[in-house]
Structure formats: structure tokens, C-alpha cells
Amino acid sequence: MASEADKPEAEGAEGGGAEVTKKFLYVNRKAPYGTIYALESLEVVLIGAAFEQDVSLAFLDDGVYQLTKNQDTKGIGVKNFSPTYKALGDYEVTKLYVEKESLAERGLTEADLMEITYEDEDDDWAEKPSIRVVSREEMAEIMAEQDVILSF
């Protein structure tokens, strides 16, 4: 994002020299195999995770199809990358917001989605769900809270 360069970094103004953590949202609006967007997004998320920012993923419109269970790509000769969403917790990406209206429009419910969990370091490594189904209004709020939005 071009606008990032001119934002001042908090250079230890409080004496700590702490890095500034920004809120990054990756917005996913495309179905998985028809275009390259979904896979590209996932790869950018995994690479970007090294920068230790506050990362969330949003799935809306056809993006919700990325998380459906039982994907099997043997017949179309491309890699099935749906299991990789389950590795996101290892990369400390633990907030996957899925829009309820987008699911409903497509005749889907949360039960049609993969089970994706993370282990909460601050809660004795308890396993917790990463997927959070939110309303469209909540999704709009989540978008409004971000410092950077990357769309795919």
C-alpha cells in the first residue's frame, strides 16, 4: 500500500522502541478454482504472517466457497489447497470472519464449512475455532477498523 510509507512509525516514543502492530484484513470474494485469486491470497497471507501484524481474513460473496468441506480436485488436475487453511493457526492467523448473508444466499450454513481451529497460547493452548460467522453489518464494522485492506 503506497500510503503506508508516509505513516510515521512510533519510534520508541514511550521509551520502549516497540514495533507498531497494524491491523491487516485480507478480503476474499472469489470462489477457489475458477481464478487464481483465492490461492494467491492464501500465499500472501502465509508469507505476510512473518511480519507479525494483527491479521484477519474476511470471506464474503463467492469467497465463502473457499472454506467448504470435502473439496477434492483430483479430477481437475489442480492442487487442492483447502487443507492449507487449517495451517493458518500455526502461522498465528486465527481470525477468519465469514459473512452470514453470503452463506445464506448460497444455501450454505456454518456446517458446510471446514473445521478450522487454532491453539490459544494465552489459554493453556486450548483449541478454539478460527471461523467466526458475522453479519454483513459486523463485516462492514470489521472493515472499518483496519489499517490496511488487501483485496483478492
Partner: peptide, 8 residues
């Protein structure tokens, strides 16, 4: 604007 969101 602080943030730009590109709808693709």
C-alpha cells in the same frame, strides 16, 4: 483517506 479498499 486512511484506508483504500479495492473491490475486484
Amino acid at each position: 483517506h486512511d484506508v483504500t479498499q479495492s473491490w475486484l
